[in-house]
Amino acid sequence: MGSRDYLPYRSARQYQDRKMAKWMGFFLSEHTSALQQPMLEASDEIHAQAPSDKLLLIHQLYATNLTAQFQIRDQSNLSHLIGKVTDIQNHTIGIASSKDYRFVAFEDILTITLVETIDT
């Protein structure tokens, strides 16, 4: 801390700067509000895989009969579907999950992640 002896007022000479303490309330409130915002506000296109990568993964999943997790855009919501690719058509793929069978448009698939299954 620098010397403030040149200042005319005693209160100014003795002032102790609390450094970041005065900003903590601001940063805490900003952090809390950022955590409460839904993650969907971020652009889906930023997090989406490239179409060529998705196509390659879909064909590999179909050929090897492996299970994957698909992040799917339904209107304005995001949903997750875990299943196997059982059918590939022009613009849709068939995904069989443990609960149901769905056809999903290729454009609605944002990400594909391989799921490790444990055989019992």
Rank of each mutant, 00 (worst) to 15 (best):
I88R: 01
I109W: 03
F26N: 04
Q14N: 07
L55K: 10
M39R: 14
N90L: 05
I58W: 05
G2Y: 11
D17E: 11
Y15W: 13
M24P: 00
R73M: 06
A12Y: 09
T32M: 09
D108S: 11
T111C: 01
K22C: 00
L110I: 07
E41P: 01
I109Q: 00
S79E: 12
L55M: 10
F106W: 04
W23E: 10
V104D: 05
L57W: 03
K99F: 01
S3D: 13
I118K: 08
E30I: 11
I112H: 05
K99M: 08
Q16V: 00
V115L: 15
H91C: 04
I93P: 01
A34S: 13
T92S: 03
L78A: 05
Q75A: 09
R4K: 15
S79K: 15
L81K: 13
A12C: 09
Q69T: 07
I118F: 09
A48Q: 06
T67E: 00
P38L: 00
A105M: 10
E41H: 05
R18Y: 04
Q16P: 08
E107S: 08
P8Q: 15
P8M: 14
S11T: 08
Y62D: 01
D87V: 03
F27N: 03
A48P: 07
A42L: 13
N65F: 14
S3F: 15
I58K: 06
M20N: 14
S11Y: 03
A42G: 14
N77H: 12
A105R: 09
G25Y: 03
E107P: 08
E107I: 05
V85P: 01
L40D: 14
S52A: 12
Y9V: 13
I58R: 02
S98P: 01
